[in-house]
């Protein structure tokens, strides 16, 4: 066993406490400031009110941004579900030359800095596609998001496929089912929760993303993070930003929570 003196234990605990405070204090300040009556966020909060929630709820730009975020995240999620699962099948069942490279290729879009990915897409769109007479517009944002979301679905599905018993599929084939029937009746029911969990994480990732979006969003189109970014640049509407930020926290935690539940129930079986 690992034994520590009393002092060491207490100092370890102190470090853990510092880490937790460091992680949660700023978020708490933000959420509490969503109920700040004043326009400018501060601490301590002088007066409490729901005023900014009403303002946010009635704001047309915020609604439009929310809609855009949802469309982009759904689009990116759908593409990532298909592509991520395909790669997961290939990498979990086959040994082949270049396997490591394929793996790296899937990880690369989130391993490389967002600004590089964003600039790469933006450069392709505006310096190559546009001169060639092809306006990608809104779809360009979805393409970029889908690219870095693939890894989320891939990770979840791959981990599940790795643990699956291949003899069940073989048995199904021996009993006369074809590839599609085996997939539908045997393989898919075994990994569908991981599939859904990965999809939800992809949705959450896309919903939060800001840097790649800055460079790929067509002019005049805001996602929720882009709207927050613009408001942060001008300090006169600070408290309404906190409301939107709080909503973003909740909206991205719900899919993550559901995703965790999905993974957990399957692991308990």
């Amino acid at each position: 066993m690992l034994r520590f003196s009393r002092t060491s234990r207490w100092s370890l605990m102190a470090i853990v406490a510092v880490v937790l405070i460091f992680m949660y204090a700023p978020l708490s300040v933000l959420i509490l400031n969503a109920f700040n009556e004043r326009q400018i966020s501060a601490w301590p909060i002088p007066e409490w009110s729901f005023k900014w929630w009403a303002v946010a709820f009635e704001s047309e730009p915020i609604r439009a941004a929310l809609l855009n975020s949802a469309i982009v995240a759904l689009g990116a999620m759908t593409i990532a579900m298909l592509l991520g699962s395909l790669v997961a099948f290939a990498l979990s069942k086959y040994e082949f030359f270049g396997k490591g490279t394929v793996n790296l290729l899937v990880v690369l879009p989130i391993a490389l800095p967002g600004v590089v990915t964003g600039v790469a897409f933006s450069n392709t769109y505006s310096n190559f596609l546009t001169p060639a007479g092809f306006q990608i517009g809104y779809f360009g944002m979805i393409v970029a998001h889908a690219t870095f979301c693939i890894v989320m679905v891939f990770n979840n599905v791959f981990a599940r496929l790795k643990r699956m018993n291949p003899s069940l599929q073989e048995a199904s084939m021996d009993l006369g089912e074809g590839l599609w029937g085996t997939f539908r009746l045997v393989t898919f029911p075994q990994f569908r929760t991981a599939f859904a969990a990965g999809a939800l994480l992809a949705f959450a990732l896309s919903f939060d993303e800001v840097v790649v979006t800055i460079f790929t969003a067509p002019p005049g189109v805001d996602t929720l993070p882009l709207w927050i970014l613009k408001e942060m640049a001008r300090p006169n509407q600070a408290s309404v930003v906190n409301v939107v930020a709080t909503v973003v926290i909740v909206l991205s935690l719900i899919p993550v929570y559901v995703s965790q539940r999905l993974s957990r129930t399957e692991n308990e079986k």
Partner: peptide, 13 residues
């Protein structure tokens, strides 16, 4: 999962 920009805003506050 709290969101990148949200955390940035939180640190700024």
């Amino acid at each position: 999962w709290a969101g990148y920009l949200v955390k940035l805003l939180a640190m700024r506050l």
